[in-house]
Amino acid sequence: DGWETRRRRGASADHPWPTDDDHDWALVRLGAPGVIRGIVVDTAHFRGNYPQAVSVEGTSVPGSPSPAELLGDDVKWTTLVPRTPVGGHAANGFAVSVEQRFTHLRVNQHPDGGIARLRVHGEVVPDPAWLTALGTFDVVALENGGRAEDASDRFYSPASNTIQPGRSRKMDDGWETRRRRDRGNDWISYRLTAQALIRALEIDTAYLKGNSAGWASVSVRDGEGGAWTQILPRTRLQPDTDHRFVLPAPAVATHARVDIYPDGGISRLRLFGSLTETGAAELTARHQELGG
Rank of each mutant, 00 (worst) to 15 (best):
A251F: 02
S66R: 07
I39P: 03
N144S: 09
S66C: 03
Y190N: 01
E277R: 14
A148S: 13
T235A: 00
D153P: 09
L201P: 04
P165D: 13
A249K: 14
R199T: 14
A280M: 06
R199V: 12
T241F: 09
D112C: 06
V54A: 08
G184Y: 11
P65H: 05
I203C: 09
D14I: 12
V139T: 11
V61Y: 04
A256F: 01
D21T: 11
T79H: 07
P67R: 08
F102M: 07
A141P: 04
A206W: 00
A256G: 13
K209Q: 14
R179P: 14
Y207H: 15
D112G: 08
L30A: 04
H121L: 14
E149D: 10
V81P: 00
P67K: 09
G31R: 07
Y50G: 11
P111V: 02
T79F: 05
G214I: 05
E277D: 14
A141C: 06
V252F: 08
G122S: 09
T103C: 02
I266K: 06
N185I: 12
G87S: 13
D186H: 05
R257E: 09
A95C: 02
R8L: 15
D240L: 08
A253P: 08
H287R: 12
F102K: 04
T43I: 07
G63E: 05
E69H: 12
S168M: 03
P158H: 02
D21R: 10
F46N: 09
R244V: 04
A151Y: 01
T132F: 02
W187S: 11
I39M: 03
I266D: 05
H243M: 08
T254Q: 06
R191M: 05
Q288I: 08
A32K: 03
N185R: 15
R119C: 01
A216I: 04
T193I: 06
V246D: 15
Y156G: 06
F245S: 12
D153C: 04
F94M: 04
A53L: 05
T254L: 01
T132C: 10
R183I: 09
L134N: 10
R191I: 01
L134H: 11
R37S: 15
V40Q: 07
D21H: 04
R8Y: 08
H287A: 10
N211S: 13
K209M: 13
D182F: 08
G31P: 04
G146M: 03
L237M: 07
A227W: 00
D112F: 05
G31A: 10
V125C: 11
V41Y: 00
W130S: 15
A200W: 02
P85I: 05
R8K: 13
A196Q: 05
P262K: 11
S55A: 15
D1Q: 15
R244D: 06
R178F: 01
A141I: 03
H121Q: 11
P111M: 02
W215Q: 14
A13W: 09
V124S: 10
S66P: 02
L27W: 05
P233C: 08
L131Q: 03
V120M: 04
T43F: 03
